[in-house]
Computed example of a mutant assay.
Amino acid sequence: MEKKSIFFNLPYWEYNLVRHNLDVMHIEKKVCNNLIYTLLGLGKKSKDNVEARLYLKEMNIRPALWPQQRASGRTYLSPTYFTMSPKEKRLFYEVLENVKFPYSYASNISRCIRKRNLSGLKTHDCHVILQELLPIALRRSADKRVTSVLIELCSYFRVLCSKVLKFKELELLVEKIAQTMSNMETIFLPSFFTVMVHLVIHLALEVKIAGPVQYRWMYPIERYLRKLKSYVRNLSCPEGSIAEAYIANECLQSCSLYMEGGDSRSYWSRKSKDDTKHEIDKEGCLFPTIGKSYGSVEVISWIRKHGCKHIDMCFSIVNQMWSTITKSQ
């Protein structure tokens, strides 16, 4: 029995060009995890295991990769194109351990490597590894046939996530990704190609219709949800904790604008080489200006220019307006 979504009952649903928005963030994470854990042969997350080899035997394909029973009772798995030797794995780990990025570009990926084991990768870590580090780490750590295909896959994601997109390039990507996926099917096992991996082929076509992925992926939503989760102090009433913390932050942000010296909550930089200072004149400023000016700056006080008579006149007008408001109430 096949399940049919209720959205198909809508009269306009069949005319929608993009019926479901594919999240590039989660697709990148799943593809990166499948690649890394399979290439390094790490535990249960690897798509090259005994069950995957037995599935080849059931399908009666690739007999050279079928599991073999040894006299000792152990199951032997013959190496494939993407199987790495211990030396190649060591070179792969060295790239991830010694890489350095600019501040706030990426997290410290070396923290995820423990005793030649990779674990705890976040979504943005997979984003950086798939687009920046994987093509470099595979140049000396894998077969050329595997490296060429995976570099094409990494460049595909890099173009999709770029800020500027051209229709001609997207049309080439739609044609190229089909060839790339077919080449990957000749190298990796059928268990490697999960649903998330198959969705890769639809991303370029979706970008042509819906626009850049920066406006549709889940990074800003996930970061804001993490911020809201940090507000929870009472697990029995999470909604109340989030509401109270949100109101408190709004009050602090509003009050910080009226405080002289220091940065407000709306403008705060943790690490910045250019020490930006607030320019406050001698008479004090309610909302200090932020940034630097070019050329000579001449500060003219309003009081010195117009005198105190105008100030007294302004205060008298405000008092008259306030008295009329109170009388009308």
Rank of each mutant, 00 (worst) to 15 (best):
P190L: 02
I242Q: 14
E58Y: 12
P63C: 03
I280R: 08
I187G: 11
F192D: 05
K277T: 12
E250V: 15
K327E: 11
T80S: 08
L133S: 02
M84W: 13
R233M: 13
L203F: 15
N319I: 02
C237W: 06
S266T: 15
H306W: 12
K122L: 06
R158L: 11
L91V: 01
D23Y: 11
V99G: 05
K144T: 06
H310E: 14
Y81L: 06
K100Q: 04
M25K: 10
H124R: 14
N234T: 12
L170E: 03
S162R: 07
R111W: 09
I325C: 08
A71Y: 12
G295M: 03
C308M: 11
I6A: 11
V95F: 08
K57S: 02
L40Q: 00
D263R: 14
Y156M: 14
N49R: 12
Y231W: 10
S236M: 06
P238W: 05
L153W: 01
M1R: 01
Y294E: 15
C126S: 03
K163S: 08
P63N: 10
R233V: 14
S254L: 15
F92M: 02
K168R: 09
N34D: 10
Y156W: 06
Y215V: 05
K176F: 02
I61K: 00
V24T: 12
T83G: 06
I113Y: 12
I151N: 02
V232E: 05
F7A: 11
S72E: 03
L40P: 06
I129E: 03
K166W: 13
N60K: 15
I290H: 00
L40G: 04
D281F: 03
Q68F: 08
S104K: 13
L153C: 01
H198M: 00
W268Q: 12
Q253Y: 03
S46P: 05
E132M: 04
